[in-house]
Design a protein around this nucleic acid. Structure first.
Lengths: 156, 156
DNA sequence: CATGGGATCTCCAGTAACTAGAGGTTCAAG
DNA sequence: CTTGAACCTCTAGTTACTGGAGATCCCATG
Protein backbone atom coordinates (compact mmCIF):
# COMPACT_ATOMS: atom_id res chain seq x y z
CA UNK A 1 0.00 0.00 0.00
CA UNK A 2 1.51 3.25 -1.13
CA UNK A 3 0.74 6.77 -0.06
CA UNK A 4 0.03 9.35 -2.71
CA UNK A 5 3.60 10.61 -2.53
CA UNK A 6 5.01 7.18 -3.30
CA UNK A 7 2.57 6.72 -6.13
CA UNK A 8 3.67 10.07 -7.42
CA UNK A 9 7.34 9.11 -7.31
CA UNK A 10 6.60 5.68 -8.76
CA UNK A 11 4.79 7.01 -11.81
CA UNK A 12 6.32 10.43 -12.28
CA UNK A 13 2.95 12.07 -11.78
CA UNK A 14 2.58 15.11 -9.59
CA UNK A 15 0.48 14.68 -6.49
CA UNK A 16 -2.18 17.23 -7.42
CA UNK A 17 -2.47 15.58 -10.81
CA UNK A 18 -3.27 12.25 -9.20
CA UNK A 19 -6.00 13.86 -7.15
CA UNK A 20 -7.23 15.57 -10.28
CA UNK A 21 -7.49 12.24 -12.10
CA UNK A 22 -9.49 10.94 -9.20
CA UNK A 23 -11.77 13.97 -9.31
CA UNK A 24 -12.60 13.48 -12.94
CA UNK A 25 -13.05 9.77 -12.47
CA UNK A 26 -10.06 8.43 -14.34
CA UNK A 27 -8.76 6.82 -11.20
CA UNK A 28 -11.20 5.15 -8.81
CA UNK A 29 -11.37 6.41 -5.27
CA UNK A 30 -8.68 4.57 -3.34
CA UNK A 31 -8.82 3.13 0.14
CA UNK A 32 -8.14 5.50 2.98
CA UNK A 33 -6.32 5.19 6.25
CA UNK A 34 -8.08 5.85 9.52
CA UNK A 35 -6.75 9.39 9.19
CA UNK A 36 -8.29 9.83 5.75
CA UNK A 37 -5.14 9.50 3.69
CA UNK A 38 -5.15 7.71 0.35
CA UNK A 39 -3.56 4.28 0.05
CA UNK A 40 -2.95 2.71 -3.34
CA UNK A 41 -2.44 -0.91 -4.40
CA UNK A 42 -0.63 -2.40 -7.34
CA UNK A 43 -3.63 -2.19 -9.61
CA UNK A 44 -3.89 1.54 -9.18
CA UNK A 45 -0.22 1.93 -9.93
CA UNK A 46 -0.69 0.08 -13.20
CA UNK A 47 -3.74 2.08 -14.09
CA UNK A 48 -1.95 5.34 -13.48
CA UNK A 49 1.04 4.16 -15.50
CA UNK A 50 -1.31 3.35 -18.33
CA UNK A 51 -2.78 6.82 -18.16
CA UNK A 52 0.60 8.46 -18.07
CA UNK A 53 1.86 6.47 -20.98
CA UNK A 54 -1.18 7.44 -22.97
CA UNK A 55 -0.61 11.07 -22.09
CA UNK A 56 3.00 10.73 -23.21
CA UNK A 57 1.63 9.48 -26.48
CA UNK A 58 -0.42 12.62 -26.74
CA UNK A 59 -3.85 11.09 -26.22
CA UNK A 60 -6.43 13.45 -24.77
CA UNK A 61 -8.11 12.36 -21.58
CA UNK A 62 -11.36 11.52 -23.31
CA UNK A 63 -9.57 9.00 -25.48
CA UNK A 64 -7.81 7.62 -22.46
CA UNK A 65 -11.11 7.16 -20.77
CA UNK A 66 -12.32 5.14 -23.73
CA UNK A 67 -9.16 3.06 -23.77
CA UNK A 68 -9.47 2.36 -20.07
CA UNK A 69 -13.05 1.25 -20.51
CA UNK A 70 -11.90 -1.11 -23.21
CA UNK A 71 -9.05 -2.55 -21.24
CA UNK A 72 -11.37 -3.13 -18.32
CA UNK A 73 -13.24 -5.61 -20.46
CA UNK A 74 -10.84 -7.96 -22.25
CA UNK A 75 -13.58 -9.81 -24.07
CA UNK A 76 -14.51 -6.93 -26.30
CA UNK A 77 -13.10 -6.45 -29.73
CA UNK A 78 -10.08 -4.22 -29.85
CA UNK A 79 -11.34 -2.50 -32.97
CA UNK A 80 -12.07 0.76 -31.19
CA UNK A 81 -8.67 0.78 -29.54
CA UNK A 82 -7.20 0.42 -32.96
CA UNK A 83 -9.37 3.21 -34.30
CA UNK A 84 -8.37 5.54 -31.52
CA UNK A 85 -4.72 4.80 -32.07
CA UNK A 86 -5.00 5.31 -35.81
CA UNK A 87 -6.81 8.54 -35.31
CA UNK A 88 -4.09 9.66 -32.96
CA UNK A 89 -1.48 8.71 -35.52
CA UNK A 90 -3.19 10.87 -38.11
CA UNK A 91 -3.29 13.70 -35.66
CA UNK A 92 0.41 13.34 -34.98
CA UNK A 93 1.18 13.30 -38.68
CA UNK A 94 -0.87 16.39 -39.24
CA UNK A 95 1.05 18.17 -36.53
CA UNK A 96 4.34 16.96 -37.87
CA UNK A 97 3.59 18.35 -41.29
CA UNK A 98 2.42 21.62 -39.91
CA UNK A 99 5.42 22.00 -37.63
CA UNK A 100 7.75 21.21 -40.50
CA UNK A 101 6.39 24.06 -42.57
CA UNK A 102 6.49 26.29 -39.56
CA UNK A 103 10.11 25.47 -39.06
CA UNK A 104 10.82 26.36 -42.63
CA UNK A 105 9.20 29.73 -42.31
CA UNK A 106 10.94 30.50 -39.07
CA UNK A 107 14.29 29.58 -40.55
CA UNK A 108 13.70 31.78 -43.54
CA UNK A 109 12.72 34.66 -41.29
CA UNK A 110 15.77 34.31 -39.11
CA UNK A 111 18.19 33.85 -41.98
CA UNK A 112 17.10 37.08 -43.54
CA UNK A 113 17.52 39.16 -40.44
CA UNK A 114 20.68 41.19 -40.76
CA UNK A 115 20.49 42.49 -37.24
CA UNK A 116 19.97 46.21 -37.61
CA UNK A 117 17.07 48.16 -36.21
CA UNK A 118 13.49 47.05 -36.14
CA UNK A 119 12.75 49.25 -39.13
CA UNK A 120 14.49 46.84 -41.46
CA UNK A 121 14.22 43.66 -39.50
CA UNK A 122 13.08 40.77 -41.61
CA UNK A 123 11.64 38.92 -38.68
CA UNK A 124 9.20 41.66 -37.84
CA UNK A 125 8.47 42.24 -41.47
CA UNK A 126 7.80 38.59 -42.13
CA UNK A 127 5.44 38.44 -39.26
CA UNK A 128 3.60 41.48 -40.47
CA UNK A 129 3.22 40.03 -43.90
CA UNK A 130 1.05 37.05 -44.42
CA UNK A 131 1.64 36.95 -48.14
CA UNK A 132 4.34 34.40 -48.84
CA UNK A 133 3.35 32.34 -45.89
CA UNK A 134 3.73 28.62 -46.30
CA UNK A 135 2.10 27.84 -43.05
CA UNK A 136 -1.27 28.79 -44.37
CA UNK A 137 -2.26 25.22 -44.60
CA UNK A 138 -2.70 25.55 -40.90
CA UNK A 139 -6.06 26.60 -42.06
CA UNK A 140 -7.31 23.10 -41.59
CA UNK A 141 -10.89 22.92 -40.43
CA UNK A 142 -9.82 20.39 -37.85
CA UNK A 143 -11.72 19.71 -34.66
CA UNK A 144 -8.74 20.48 -32.49
CA UNK A 145 -7.84 19.15 -29.10
CA UNK A 146 -4.52 19.96 -27.64
CA UNK A 147 -1.79 17.54 -27.01
CA UNK A 148 1.75 17.34 -28.28
CA UNK A 149 4.02 18.31 -25.49
CA UNK A 150 1.77 18.43 -22.52
CA UNK A 151 4.24 20.18 -20.21
CA UNK A 152 4.36 17.36 -17.78
CA UNK A 153 7.16 15.50 -16.20
CA UNK A 154 9.89 17.41 -14.58
CA UNK A 155 11.26 14.98 -12.06
CA UNK A 156 13.15 17.85 -10.52
CA UNK B 1 -14.19 51.94 -40.94
CA UNK B 2 -15.11 48.33 -40.38
CA UNK B 3 -17.42 46.78 -37.84
CA UNK B 4 -16.17 43.92 -35.77
CA UNK B 5 -17.81 41.40 -38.06
CA UNK B 6 -16.00 42.74 -41.09
CA UNK B 7 -12.72 42.74 -39.21
CA UNK B 8 -13.45 39.18 -38.27
CA UNK B 9 -14.06 38.15 -41.87
CA UNK B 10 -11.08 40.16 -43.08
CA UNK B 11 -8.62 38.47 -40.74
CA UNK B 12 -10.17 35.09 -40.13
CA UNK B 13 -10.46 35.82 -36.44
CA UNK B 14 -13.60 35.02 -34.54
CA UNK B 15 -15.47 37.97 -33.13
CA UNK B 16 -15.14 36.96 -29.47
CA UNK B 17 -11.43 36.48 -30.02
CA UNK B 18 -11.08 40.04 -31.21
CA UNK B 19 -12.83 41.30 -28.12
CA UNK B 20 -10.62 39.04 -26.06
CA UNK B 21 -7.48 40.54 -27.59
CA UNK B 22 -8.82 43.95 -26.73
CA UNK B 23 -9.50 42.85 -23.16
CA UNK B 24 -5.99 41.66 -22.62
CA UNK B 25 -4.57 44.75 -24.27
CA UNK B 26 -3.16 43.28 -27.45
CA UNK B 27 -5.46 45.43 -29.51
CA UNK B 28 -6.09 49.03 -28.47
CA UNK B 29 -9.63 50.09 -27.75
CA UNK B 30 -11.17 51.11 -31.05
CA UNK B 31 -13.41 54.03 -31.82
CA UNK B 32 -17.08 53.55 -31.18
CA UNK B 33 -20.21 54.61 -32.98
CA UNK B 34 -22.82 56.69 -31.21
CA UNK B 35 -24.52 53.40 -30.38
CA UNK B 36 -21.37 51.99 -28.79
CA UNK B 37 -20.32 49.63 -31.54
CA UNK B 38 -16.65 49.16 -32.40
CA UNK B 39 -15.25 50.65 -35.60
CA UNK B 40 -11.82 49.68 -36.86
CA UNK B 41 -9.40 51.41 -39.21
CA UNK B 42 -6.68 50.06 -41.47
CA UNK B 43 -4.07 50.15 -38.74
CA UNK B 44 -6.06 47.86 -36.53
CA UNK B 45 -6.56 45.44 -39.36
CA UNK B 46 -2.81 45.24 -39.85
CA UNK B 47 -2.16 44.82 -36.19
CA UNK B 48 -4.63 42.00 -35.93
CA UNK B 49 -3.16 40.34 -38.99
CA UNK B 50 0.25 40.54 -37.37
CA UNK B 51 -1.08 38.90 -34.26
CA UNK B 52 -2.80 36.18 -36.21
CA UNK B 53 0.26 35.43 -38.24
CA UNK B 54 2.32 35.17 -35.09
CA UNK B 55 -0.24 32.78 -33.62
CA UNK B 56 -0.07 30.72 -36.79
CA UNK B 57 3.63 30.53 -36.21
CA UNK B 58 2.97 29.18 -32.77
CA UNK B 59 4.13 32.17 -30.77
CA UNK B 60 2.51 32.50 -27.36
CA UNK B 61 0.70 35.75 -26.66
CA UNK B 62 3.41 37.01 -24.34
CA UNK B 63 5.94 36.78 -27.15
CA UNK B 64 3.53 38.49 -29.48
CA UNK B 65 3.14 41.28 -27.01
CA UNK B 66 6.90 41.72 -27.00
CA UNK B 67 7.07 41.67 -30.77
CA UNK B 68 4.30 44.24 -31.02
CA UNK B 69 6.11 46.50 -28.60
CA UNK B 70 9.19 46.19 -30.76
CA UNK B 71 7.43 46.88 -34.00
CA UNK B 72 5.82 49.93 -32.47
CA UNK B 73 9.27 51.44 -32.18
CA UNK B 74 11.25 51.02 -35.41
CA UNK B 75 14.35 52.68 -33.99
CA UNK B 76 15.15 49.92 -31.59
CA UNK B 77 17.49 47.09 -32.33
CA UNK B 78 15.82 44.02 -33.66
CA UNK B 79 18.00 41.77 -31.55
CA UNK B 80 15.18 40.77 -29.26
CA UNK B 81 12.89 39.98 -32.14
CA UNK B 82 15.60 37.74 -33.44
CA UNK B 83 16.00 36.10 -30.05
CA UNK B 84 12.31 35.44 -29.76
CA UNK B 85 12.18 33.93 -33.20
CA UNK B 86 15.20 31.74 -32.56
CA UNK B 87 13.75 30.58 -29.33
CA UNK B 88 10.55 29.73 -31.10
CA UNK B 89 12.49 27.81 -33.70
CA UNK B 90 14.13 25.74 -31.00
CA UNK B 91 10.78 25.06 -29.50
CA UNK B 92 9.43 23.92 -32.84
CA UNK B 93 12.38 21.64 -33.38
CA UNK B 94 11.96 20.11 -29.99
CA UNK B 95 8.36 19.36 -30.77
CA UNK B 96 9.21 17.98 -34.14
CA UNK B 97 11.68 15.53 -32.65
CA UNK B 98 9.27 14.47 -30.00
CA UNK B 99 6.40 14.02 -32.42
CA UNK B 100 8.60 11.99 -34.71
CA UNK B 101 9.36 9.47 -31.99
CA UNK B 102 5.73 9.45 -31.01
CA UNK B 103 4.77 8.61 -34.52
CA UNK B 104 7.19 5.74 -34.53
CA UNK B 105 5.74 4.27 -31.40
CA UNK B 106 2.18 4.66 -32.61
CA UNK B 107 3.04 2.98 -35.88
CA UNK B 108 4.64 0.09 -34.09
CA UNK B 109 1.63 -0.30 -31.85
CA UNK B 110 -0.82 -0.29 -34.71
CA UNK B 111 1.21 -2.62 -36.89
CA UNK B 112 1.24 -5.23 -34.21
CA UNK B 113 -2.48 -5.23 -33.61
CA UNK B 114 -3.97 -8.30 -35.20
CA UNK B 115 -7.52 -7.22 -34.47
CA UNK B 116 -8.84 -9.82 -32.08
CA UNK B 117 -10.24 -9.10 -28.65
CA UNK B 118 -8.86 -6.61 -26.21
CA UNK B 119 -7.21 -9.41 -24.28
CA UNK B 120 -4.54 -9.83 -26.93
CA UNK B 121 -4.59 -6.39 -28.48
CA UNK B 122 -1.14 -4.99 -28.95
CA UNK B 123 -2.35 -1.42 -28.81
CA UNK B 124 -3.73 -1.77 -25.32
CA UNK B 125 -0.78 -3.83 -24.25
CA UNK B 126 1.69 -1.30 -25.57
CA UNK B 127 -0.07 1.45 -23.76
CA UNK B 128 -0.02 -0.50 -20.55
CA UNK B 129 3.66 -1.16 -20.83
CA UNK B 130 6.05 1.71 -20.51
CA UNK B 131 9.09 -0.52 -20.94
CA UNK B 132 10.21 -0.31 -24.54
CA UNK B 133 8.98 3.20 -24.89
CA UNK B 134 10.97 5.45 -27.14
CA UNK B 135 9.01 8.50 -26.28
CA UNK B 136 10.52 8.69 -22.86
CA UNK B 137 12.69 11.54 -23.91
CA UNK B 138 9.54 13.53 -23.49
CA UNK B 139 10.87 13.71 -20.02
CA UNK B 140 12.42 17.06 -20.80
CA UNK B 141 12.40 19.47 -17.90
CA UNK B 142 11.07 22.15 -20.20
CA UNK B 143 9.14 25.20 -19.08
CA UNK B 144 6.17 24.44 -21.33
CA UNK B 145 3.72 26.80 -22.95
CA UNK B 146 1.26 25.45 -25.37
CA UNK B 147 1.12 26.22 -28.98
CA UNK B 148 1.44 24.02 -32.02
CA UNK B 149 -1.99 23.74 -33.52
CA UNK B 150 -3.98 26.24 -31.59
CA UNK B 151 -7.37 25.11 -32.89
CA UNK B 152 -8.14 28.32 -34.67
CA UNK B 153 -9.32 29.10 -38.11
CA UNK B 154 -12.23 27.36 -39.44
CA UNK B 155 -13.54 29.71 -42.02
CA UNK B 156 -16.65 27.56 -42.10
C1' DC C 1 -41.53 56.63 -40.51
C1' DA C 2 -42.08 52.09 -38.70
C1' DT C 3 -40.44 47.47 -38.38
C1' DG C 4 -37.89 43.41 -38.44
C1' DG C 5 -33.92 40.63 -38.51
C1' DG C 6 -29.14 40.34 -38.31
C1' DA C 7 -25.12 42.36 -36.11
C1' DT C 8 -23.41 44.01 -31.84
C1' DC C 9 -23.16 44.95 -27.01
C1' DT C 10 -21.73 43.26 -22.05
C1' DC C 11 -21.09 39.82 -18.80
C1' DC C 12 -20.54 35.31 -17.16
C1' DA C 13 -19.19 30.62 -17.51
C1' DG C 14 -16.85 26.80 -19.61
C1' DT C 15 -12.96 24.25 -22.19
C1' DA C 16 -8.22 21.08 -21.39
C1' DA C 17 -5.21 19.54 -18.22
C1' DC C 18 -3.38 20.63 -14.93
C1' DT C 19 -0.81 23.79 -11.12
C1' DA C 20 -0.39 26.47 -6.91
C1' DG C 21 -1.60 28.22 -2.55
C1' DA C 22 -3.92 28.62 2.06
C1' DG C 23 -4.88 26.69 6.21
C1' DG C 24 -5.42 22.61 8.73
C1' DT C 25 -4.51 17.36 9.99
C1' DT C 26 -1.89 12.98 10.16
C1' DC C 27 1.99 9.96 10.12
C1' DA C 28 6.30 8.21 11.49
C1' DA C 29 10.86 8.84 13.27
C1' DG C 30 13.53 10.06 17.28
C1' DC D 1 5.76 13.21 23.03
C1' DT D 2 7.31 16.17 19.81
C1' DT D 3 8.41 17.75 15.44
C1' DG D 4 8.48 18.16 10.65
C1' DA D 5 7.37 16.14 6.34
C1' DA D 6 3.53 14.45 4.02
C1' DC D 7 -1.14 14.66 3.58
C1' DC D 8 -5.98 16.65 3.54
C1' DT D 9 -9.74 19.90 1.23
C1' DC D 10 -10.96 23.83 -1.18
C1' DT D 11 -10.37 27.63 -4.10
C1' DA D 12 -8.43 30.01 -7.73
C1' DG D 13 -5.18 30.66 -11.58
C1' DT D 14 -3.03 29.25 -16.02
C1' DT D 15 -3.47 29.73 -21.78
C1' DA D 16 -6.06 31.14 -25.42
C1' DC D 17 -9.98 31.23 -26.47
C1' DT D 18 -15.29 29.86 -27.13
C1' DG D 19 -20.21 30.00 -26.21
C1' DG D 20 -24.54 31.65 -24.50
C1' DA D 21 -28.05 34.92 -22.39
C1' DG D 22 -30.36 38.89 -22.69
C1' DA D 23 -30.37 43.50 -24.27
C1' DT D 24 -29.39 46.97 -27.82
C1' DC D 25 -28.24 48.84 -32.39
C1' DC D 26 -28.14 49.42 -37.45
C1' DC D 27 -30.02 49.61 -41.72
C1' DA D 28 -32.77 48.10 -45.52
C1' DT D 29 -37.45 47.51 -46.85
C1' DG D 30 -42.46 48.59 -47.01
Amino acid sequence: MLGIGQLSAETGTKVPTIRYYEDIGLLPEPERTAGNQRRYGKQQVDRLRFIRHCRDMGFPLTDIRALLDLSDDPERSCASADTIARHQLQEVERRLASLASLRQELCRMIDQCAGGTVADCRVIESLADHAHCIADRHTTPAPTEQLAEPTRRDPA
